[in-house]
Design a protein around this nucleic acid. Structure first.
Lengths: 328, 328
DNA sequence: CTGAAAGCGCTTACAG
DNA sequence: CTGAAAGCGCTTACAG
């Protein structure tokens, strides 16, 4: 910048004015000289320095718990769209369902002075979340809520998602409805709530809530659990999959055991997947409005950054929709 | 930092020494006082300021042409692993196959002073690539090469990928082998090379290279093109899919027309997909060593950053492998 | 319309 | 073993 100033025979201040498009009080001549100097020197401003001075980076961070869920990538995409329109940069990190990594990334991003954070929380960094809350740091959670801490969150109405699934299966005549999802150990919101919703939906219809009919386990154990479930005297006649990764495991099992869908067992899954149309039979699915959710999260965060006034944190629930295909 | 210094009754220099773990010449007492001050103030260093002074950010950027290809996410994952071990942060951006966006991201990341860049190039920003090359800026291309410019690149041996596919089909007795891939208009390396490899493999076996048997078109046109291909007097008996997005379209077509795989048409695809095992029949696939490729790219880039000596740029080709399943 | 000066929060020789 | 000073590359009142 000093070089540009020298070459254009003006001060750094004036170059800075030029860079920030404050042309009002600048002679055409000066402007042209600066423009030329920038071009011939191939000058590119150093944003780091600007950010240091301005105390904002025009950058937000997104930390997803697990980028392998397609829901995550869709939300990220929506966030990018909103931010790109507002001239905000987005940095994405994948915590890999690992609270240590999540912590490291939060610290890294904050050290880089990002203006705010969208987090799909692992849920195990209570103190950290809390300290950000206390500092009034712009923050929004997606997909999961963390009990005992009051931070604005956007998530699916998971109970209704399960209710829709059970309702659909019930209407189709299925009565032995089972549910499988990924491990419940860490109390991850969508899993817990979807299971709750499933149970409640059964009760509402006076169907028995049989513990042998619902499980939340690690991916690595799903084949075993499915085998147990289907070797019961009364195996399920319908299966609700809690998410896309679970669905893949169920389909693996179905194939290995040559089950026929929906004759041997009907199948419905929460989360849309790339192959739901082309699978034979095509898959009935409860779909999340991922794009709208991401959009909301980004807009809310940008609002927090702008206003800096602490509005009351609220949880926003989005409604799922059902896409009926041939698997039910 | 000034606050910490004051509280610990030392100078900022000493605090800085502490932060950078240069304890050698520091009394235990000083060290403890600083430690305490940091803890009670909840002080977090501002990395921006450090980077500004050190003229490096310990951050690299990755710009993928299209994050929807699963190959991209796998490569990103490998890059993150390598960098995380080397204490380097990774910023990922999605150019969305759009040269404008790619340009914007390159400029953004460079303005943010990232130490180097991994790019899946769209191929349309020649001047930009060239200027980075001239500046000797650390840079490596993945998946695609850009003709007319000499930048180290890591990519699949695409010709061999097609050769393996054709070889396999040929051995299985198929003779009317067609190929479909995404649009060739922008001369994107893997598409062009895979098609070349396909043609060459046919020639090698004295099979006719029939223009009605290979196409590169937009996703939106694939159904039409497939319909044409299969309404020929002599429709193909085997189909080679150029990538995962194409595969999805082919399977859509197969289903719509109730074709039986492999009886009506055999199917092989380049790129592994999440559902290849569970699809009925399971899908034979040519797989890229995505993880190794990402690892190589990251290591090479870090090496460039460290040494700053310009080794001769070279293209590194990785060998694909075939996973034979039931669709061929 | 333009420039001198201070400052953002660090690091790094250098002196003591 | 520790501190004063300069400087990284910008922006921003303020003065003229």
């Amino acid at each position: 910048m000093a070089d540009v100033a020298q070459m254009a025979k003006v001060s750094k201040s004036t170059v800075s004015q030029y860079l920030n498009q404050r042309y009002e009080y600048m002679s055409e001549d000066t402007k042209n000289r600066i423009e030329e100097a920038i071009a011939t020197l191939g000058y590119k401003p150093n944003i780091l320095a600007r950010s240091l001075k301005q105390k904002k980076t025009s950058t937000i961070g997104v930390i997803v718990a697990n980028i392998l869920h397609s829901f995550s990538t869709q939300v990220i995409r929506a966030i990018e769209d909103v931010c790109s329109a507002a001239d905000i940069n987005v940095i994405v990190c994948n915590a890999d369902d690992n609270p240590e990594k999540e912590k490291k990334y939060i610290e890294m991003l904050r050290a880089k002075q990002v203006d705010g954070l969208v987090i799909f929380p692992t849920g195990s960094n209570l103190e950290l979340y809390d300290s950000m809350k206390k500092e009034n740091y712009p923050l929004i959670f997606v997909d999961r809520i963390v009990k005992g801490i009051n931070i604005p969150s956007v998530l699916l109405n998971n109970e209704i998602a399960s209710e829709m699934a059970v309702e659909h299966l019930y209407t189709k005549g299925y009565r032995k409805i089972a549910m499988l999802t990924t491990t419940l150990e860490r109390g991850i919101t969508p899993r817990v709530e979807r299971l709750e919703g499933y149970k409640r939906a059964l009760e509402k219809r006076s169907l028995p809530v049989n513990p042998d009919y619902f499980k939340g386990v690690e991916i690595s154990q799903m084949q075993t659990v499915l085998a147990e479930m289907f070797s019961q005297p009364k195996p399920p006649d319908a299966l609700l999959s809690g998410n896309d990764l679970t669905l893949l495991e169920i389909l693996k099992f179905v194939k290995k055991n040559e089950l026929s869908i929906p004759n041997d067992v009907a199948l419905i899954s929460i989360d849309e997947v790339s192959f739901s149309e082309i699978y034979e039979p095509s898959l009935t699915v409860i779909s999340q409005p991922a794009f709208e959710m991401g959009k909301y999260a980004a807009e809310n965060l940008l609002e927090q950054i702008r206003s800096s006034e602490k509005s009351d944190p609220i949880n926003v629930r989005f409604l799922p929709s059902i896409i009926v295909r041939k698997s039910t």
